[in-house]
Design a protein around this nucleic acid. Sequence first.
DNA 1: TTAGGGTTAG
Length: 424
Amino acid sequence: MPTLLYNALIRANHIAGLTHKSLLLFTQMLSNQVPPNSYTFPPILKSAATYPPHLGTALHSQVLKRGVLSDPFIQTTLVVTYSRNNRVDHAWKVFVEIPFFCVVACNAMLNAFCTNGDIEGALSLFERMPNRDVVSWTTIVNGFALNGSYEAAIRLFGMMMAHKDVVDCLVKPNEATFVSVLSSCANLDSRAALDCGKQVHGYIVMNEVNLGIFVGTSLINLYGKMGCLNYAVNVFDRMVSREVCTWNAMISSLASNGKEKESLDMFEKMKVEGLQPNSITLVAVLTACAHGNFVREGLELFRSMSRDFKVVPIMQHYGCVIDLLGRAGHLQEAADIIRNMPFQPDASVLGAFLGACRIHGAIELGEEIGRKMLKLQTEHCGQYVLLSSMNAEKERWDRAANLRKDITEAGIQKIPAYSMVHLT
DNA sequence: TTAGGGTTAG
């Protein structure tokens, strides 16, 4: 079989997600002494990115050996592969060897910085790039979002729209750009962020941008988070095609806006339409059950989800079901589930339980689980609280307040309040 | 035949 056929097969398997098969074909190719060429490596390197890093490195040596390292497609793919292996240092080494400023390679490197948490590195490269296209802008907007700087992401999107960039003044956003900025808006909690999201929506409508799965789902998520349920429903109804994530966003929006019954109805409708609920769907539906006090339905769903939907419960599902039982006062049942969990419960599960114990005055049960929680979280929470108190003693109020904020953000805010555990 | 950016989670 000639090189060309191997290349086609490797690529086809890579696209189909059969990364193992595509790697196997490559080894077969070598053992049959069919020489790989520059077309062989991009798909095989991307397949390798899903495996431990040494595979990528081994393929890098093959690239060298076959004398195709100067191929720009291979160089860019190497940057991507090392980045996905969290080796941004190796990605950079490959990148600096690329002789000409190529916008695609720069974008790959930009994304390498962004996905590895080096937003300063990304920004520095972004500012030095001689050319920036819509992918560059989207990557940096999304990079800020990935690193939690949603305001900065929105600001950069604004710069792009206002053509503030002297070099590149004709960049038009596309669907990926909208998705990044809408997601940033949804992660904020201000009127300004909602207004920004609405403006983006307006732009989408005015410019007759296709309301595809990604944009539609992002809009539903934004409006759902901001409490604008009518807008979310409106977008959902207007969409021509919907996927599981679209339904998930709609079910979550209804569940968190007091429409628990409608949320469950939506879940039924989704199943009727032949869609397979996934792990996220079940988190959303269990949330609806917890908020709507549908104890029996929620518990039934939780117990049958592995069988009916092939979704094995993870921490979040346990969190929901403990919340569900806890709110309704079924503390003994909740404690049984915690005791029999196949993995250690985290602070969110135990926190939900302790909250319920406090509300329902179940001191003994609370103590048992509280001890378990302290044991798990001592270094985490204890150190934070201690640090916070020490700062307060020295009148470093701002630092003390920041640490307290960290505790809240880590989702373990219930621990310091649970002083009865310390008394035992 | 080949390279870069995107959605949903108590």
